[in-house]
Design a protein around this nucleic acid. Structure first.
Lengths: 104, 104
DNA sequence: ACCGTACTACGAGAATCATCAAAGTTCGAT
DNA sequence: ATCGAACTTTGATGATTCTCGTAGTACGGT
């Protein structure tokens, strides 16, 4: 069993700091990341009340996924997203904690 | 003596995480921040060999200043920039270290 | 087989951004 | 007072991005 993922994700060594920072710099995506930080087991982002359209949400989740910030895996008709905490902490120790420490 | 600064800077409590992340997300600005991290006493960004025009550099330094990432003060005809390490570490502990830990 | 839910793909519009050149400002030095 | 160096301002351009609606796909349940 090599690939249980249906969607492309960057390997840890392919993650670029500029892409991560850009992904985190958007208010909507930051809210998603904050929410995911509270749910280590992952959750469907569609359940979050973000006040944006479904297609916009798709765009943001893809941005986060392609940057290497979140891991996304299909579950039925939903897609479960989770923070790539281990990878991010290994690459940029303290970054995620610092971002999450910011006042809401 | 209230204001020794000639340029407007956000107070610590006015710094917003989205602005900081956006400021750090640009490759040129990230290079500037990395350089400033090596020079605690500050330096004129014009001395860095960034391969951009002077007006573009002005734009980037202003973005960093207005986000609260750097402190800029005039010195003769130059402007000395320095990282606002204390403020950033207080607001987002670990963020700066994490960013600087990233492979260049 | 059909329907509803969850999500994606596509195309478009508005806004933001990075970049530059040209012209202007400020300051120190001659 | 003049000059040059360092920087800013303005205006423009092209690229990127955020947003949406519409149409489409995939999956589970009835």
């Amino acid at each position: 069993m090599v690939a249980m993922q249906a969607l492309p994700h960057p390997e840890r060594d392919e993650i670029r700091i500029e892409a991560v920072l850009h992904a985190l710099a958007d208010p909507v995506r930051l809210r998603i990341v904050r929410e995911l930080a509270l749910r280590p087991d992952g959750v469907s982002c569609g359940l979050m009340d973000l006040g944006i359209s479904a297609s916009t949400l798709t765009h943001h989740v893809r941005t986060l996924r392609e940057a290497g910030v979140v891991f996304v895996t299909p579950r039925g008709t939903s897609r479960i997203s989770s923070l790539r905490r281990e990878d991010l902490d290994a690459l940029y120790p303290g970054l995620l904690n610092g971002v999450l420490a910011a006042p809401r």
